[in-house]
Design a protein around this nucleic acid. Structure first.
Lengths: 194, 194
DNA sequence: ACAATTAATTAACAAATGTTATTTCGTGGT
DNA sequence: ACCACGAAATAACATTTGTTAATTAATTGT
């Protein structure tokens, strides 16, 4: 087993070594170049991606052809196509490497089978889903209680890593605005802070 | 066991009758009057609410005192204070009955203990958390890909029940806008559709 | 049924965003 | 080092939203 694999899973206290080995058997380590597409709308992409290195963004394409970034995942995060993971359906999202990426790619179909026998794996799943739900719930607050400008500031305060590593054209829709508006917000901030 | 309780849980195929009985033992059926507060910010509200009848909204109060509705739950939904449910922390939200409500109130602290012994209860938990995550993910799309007007229309198309039963003053922030703006959107729609 | 209170609509104006186009800046590739 | 391309910034204008206030409609309580 690769050292990086073990390292990644060591932090999950629900799992013992043999559990990690079970996961290892249904996983592979893959690398993606910056800009490379990992999954497309329409794919049956039955993988959860544990990010060892890099940034992955998830986006959708609107009927008019415009892209909207819906998730951004960094090192140590898990990410996946929501509809594949939760509904065993086809993806309605695209996954794309923003930087060169190294990821652990876990076959979720096989993983779900394993949870039938192994209660620790089920708990691992359950805890991680709960963790993601928690983050997602906070992201909704982000939209419901904040203005676009406040959302940018909150990202700057709470998650500067994302702003540093993700191009603005992707960040803008992640915040729920256009690139032009994001640029204006940044310029307003720059002028007021000196 | 109340008929309504059994009825509510019958739809969860992971559970057998004795599982439902286990849940029953750590639950109570409560009723709340329209407008009544169910939980407050700061509370340790360790309950999941299964709604038998009524509408429950979840809101937060911003530092300037303004309310923002973040969730709306109807019959057959589960709802809870996110931070209590997922992090065993104190609530940062308020829960309030919008209509007269009848709810199954499950002690989540005790429930989590039960999942240590009973794998079907763990799977029940896991599946429901996954279901909620799925809805929450869609709600983020709602904000990321749609304009306020489109969001109102989407709610009208996909969830008219909410619009019919929840006052506009609550709906507005649920959609991410002010009551005035919601009123204008409605009036624009009314004028264009005839 | 009535009064009193609250909700929803409308109006008027300020401020922010969206849109389209242009310019400037930065980056990657050769 | 240079060119070419894409990203970001800026500009100008239309549209929408936010804000505050006034009016109308609806609801609640007695």
């Amino acid at each position: 087993m690769e050292k990086s694999f073990l390292e990644f899973f060591k932090k999950f206290s629900q799992l013992n070594l043999s559990d990690i080995l079970e996961i290892y058997k249904i996983s592979s380590i893959k690398s993606y170049k910056a800009g490379e597409k990992i999954a497309q709308e329409g794919d049956q992409f039955d993988f959860a991606l544990g990010i060892l290195k890099g940034v992955i963004r998830t986006y959708v394409i609107k009927s008019n052809g415009e892209e909207r970034t819906v998730r951004i995942a960094l090192e140590k995060d898990f990410t996946a196509c929501a509809n594949c993971l939760l509904n065993d359906g086809k993806s309605n999202e695209f996954l794309e490497a923003v930087e060169d990426c190294l990821v652990i790619q876990i076959n979720t179909r096989k993983f779900k089978e394993l949870t039938q026998q192994n209660i620790r794996l089920l708990r691992f799943w359950s805890d991680n889903i709960g963790q993601v739900l928690n983050e997602t719930t906070n992201r909704i607050l982000f939209f419901v209680v904040m203005t676009p400008e406040e959302r940018y500031q909150a990202l700057l305060d709470q998650n500067p890593e994302i702003i540093l590593r993700v191009p603005q054209k992707y960040l803008a829709s992640y915040i729920g605005i256009t690139t032009v508006s994001l640029s204006r917000i940044r310029s307003r901030k720059a002028n007021s802070n000196n």
